[in-house]
Amino acid sequence: MNAIEVENLTCAYGDKTILKDVSFSVKEREILFIIGGSGCGKSTLLRCMIGLLAPKSGEIRYFEKSFLNASEEEQRHILKSFGVLYQSNALWSSMTIAENIALPLEQYTTHTKTEIAEKVALKLEQVGLPGVQELYPRELSGGMKKRAALARALALDPKIVFFDEPTSGLDPVTARGMDDLILEVSKTFGTTMVIVSHELASIFSLAHRVILLDGEVQGIIAEGSPEKLAAERNDKRVANFFTNRKSNINPASFWGQCSNFKF
């Protein structure tokens, strides 16, 4: 069964179309990476999928239920079935970590305060961050914030988790630790994951499948396992992304552009 189905999705900011007729699906328990160069529409696609940006046209289905055409109540029900880990973590800074994780539980469950406190402790333990309940987000390091944000994303035991650049701003060791945690969560809970990232190390260690977006095409230019895309030699855009990303900067062109500046 497909957990997510995106059909002919067109996303735009005002008159500027970012993505045109994008279609793909994500199977249950699959880890899908959305990759591509800066400005190609990765985050825009993610924002459309989680309901933060209304697409111009197209359809998004979660577990065969329409998300875009759903009533407000149905949409709330669908929103409950997924968690989101934001690039900036988006932990509510005026609340403690415990309050951050407890909020979705207070909103959507009938658990007592004691039960919620127990669940918060459990979630924090699952992400390897026990005993930080009473701290505020500002008191945590970057890696700890990511883990706390993941604990909040997992609070309602979602079937799907979306990640926007989960390892951005982390040192390589902490980033690999985050990758291990994502893999562990996926294996333990069978969660479907959609990850927007540039990190090749994360892509090769986690991805079941990858879709590569291109800004000029305004859509998907390649799709498949990371190994398959990395072996691609015919399409230079794909080859560049996986094997020769530095060659995107052409020295002659770069200095030529610089000479046009007037100081």
Binding site: L52, L79, V84, S88, A90
Partner: peptide
Amino acid sequence: EEIDALETLG
């Protein structure tokens, strides 16, 4: 993105 986080929680 704290407001976005609220909205995606419904």
